[in-house]
Nucleic acid binder design. Structure first.
Lengths: 181, 181, 181, 181
DNA sequence: CATGAATGAGCTTTCATTCAT
DNA sequence: AATGAATGAAAGCTCATTCAT
């Protein structure tokens, strides 16, 4: 086997195909062909087709929880902008598409997306608390700002690709910072 | 033929099923059963299965374009909040889910969702322009605010249902208004 | 369709094949080929393979219950011998094999076989009661005689074909008559 | 390797599974799992799946041929009753089920069952000959009695479990003795 | 001997679509 | 327009068997 073992090649193929055509529209036979393995081998490693998707989500997406936030007191705009440099999500672009695309398909995908969402909000809130020490009193407003920022980031990750619209997270960061200033 | 004619009942059934299980996972036979029509009749009205989805989007979603915005000069928060009372989208809850869920399935769905997105941004921008006559000079900032608000509304419509998180559009409206104030 | 409609031809084919090779060892594809119908049509009429077997048992075996017994008072041997002329079972030889062969496969087959057994015993008991009016007092002995006769008849129907042994029901009838005489 | 060596554990597992679900419906993978051996090892000991069944029958059923019969002259009922204490078959309950259940599956099973049947009849005949020295002249009647008793015993072993009916061999023994008396 | 990944034919079942009526 | 039987390609999945290690 030239590139990786069979199981890995199956997951590679599935990742590409699920991202492109969707889980339901991707036959296992096509996964097998792309992975250059016999069809039966897929079911040796993954007893049911859905287990391929579950394995992908389990093994190839990681919501980074609890990492420290790179916050600069007095610079909420810059702090948020740095947050927007990357979602707290270790996953390939294909896996990111799968995460949003198949959130309805299986509970484990939905759960992962929900975790990402929650972590995003938590980070944004925490970053703002650090960047704006004086604003801690207004927790509700910070919460709204954090959720708004999270919404924008997920919107950018997901819908923008579908609709062709763009949104600049840095500008949103500045907007929100201004609102809290 | 209790409610509506056959074609209508087919679309009713498909709407419910596509929203619940997704387009790919819904067999035409199940649509026929729920609609209480013979299987063949579906293909009389809709030569291919995808035509059912296209017809649903065409006939049961309407992006209201160009309607006037209920803006109050000097009250950007209230103006945005009123915008958030309802998306410029005439569609049942089921059709809304279909719009987001099947945006990858067929071009016409994606186009409709993109149209909704564009209209949302346009309205938000226009509303802010009216509510903040003095801010017209800073078009870029208005644009960002509008896009942010649109992102929040679509996020609420789509992801919140999946992840269980909530966001209060009125609070976001106030936040944005404050940022622009 | 030359001989019978498709559903009938499917059942005909299944009857022949289940009797010959057994239910588990008979692929639906072979049924379809013998019946000269496309494979998919089998599942149009019988959603699952087991439904073919159930339909066969339901529609092509009939345990004749409660029919009068041709009893001659004073001639228990002849009366039992007449009983042995035919089991109270309307079914082709193939269906008879299926009934015994697949009794473990599905509840409905087992139930039918149990009904046959029960009816056989009931008839034998009733026949003996009529043929031996004076013996009614010894109900237990009649019961044993009836069960013995039933066992012999089922043994003849089932095991004899497997083992190559033969048993003459008329001689058993006479033996039992003698025992009760 | 808690109980026995691998080969024994494979046979143990197969015995249990074949008795419960039937030969055809039992995958070798399930046998391997229950036996706690790797899948490939089964085919090391038994090149084909059917060889597992053949080995079971060969090694775990024994038709006891030619053993002396515990006959008491003048007491045919007791003699038969003692015969009914146990079939001339050394085999676990599971193997007994397999013997009847899979008689159609493979020649060796059918042969063993036929042998059991023959031995049963031979013993019953011999027992009756010894118990009724005066009846030796009427060989035909003895033969019928023996076959009847064999039929009852096999019926009890096989069908009774399926149909829920019971039959008391002792009472049958007495009935037959009475018939010959 | 022992192992479990690998194989591929074949299984039951699904399903969009057609078509005679 | 209305019907449901008919079609067959393709789906997910099973499984006895092989084989390199």
């Amino acid at each position: 086997m030239s590139i990786g073992d069979a199981r890995t090649r199956i997951l590679d193929a599935a990742e590409e195909l699920f991202a492109g055509s969707g889980y339901e529209a991707t036959p296992t036979a096509v996964i097998a062909r792309l992975a250059q393995v016999p069809k039966g081998l897929i079911f040796h490693y993954f007893p049911r087709k859905i287990d391929v998707l579950v394995a992908l989500v389990d093994e190839r997406t990681l919501v980074e929880e609890g990492r420290e936030v790179d916050a600069v007191p007095g610079d909420p705009a810059g702090t948020l902008a740095r947050l927007a440099r990357g979602l707290p999500l270790r996953a390939s672009p294909a896996m990111r598409r799968i995460l949003f695309r198949e959130a309805d398909t299986h509970g484990s995908v939905k759960e992962r997306l929900g975790r990402l969402n929650g972590e995003l909000i938590r980070r944004a809130r925490f970053a703002l608390e650090l960047a704006l020490p004086g604003a801690r009193g207004d927790a509700a407003r910070l919460e709204v700002a954090a959720a708004t920022f999270a919404a924008v980031l997920l919107y950018q990750e997901n819908l923008c690709q579908l609709t062709g619209h763009q949104i600049d997270p840095d500008a949103v960061a500045e907007l929100i910072a201004h609102a809290l200033g």
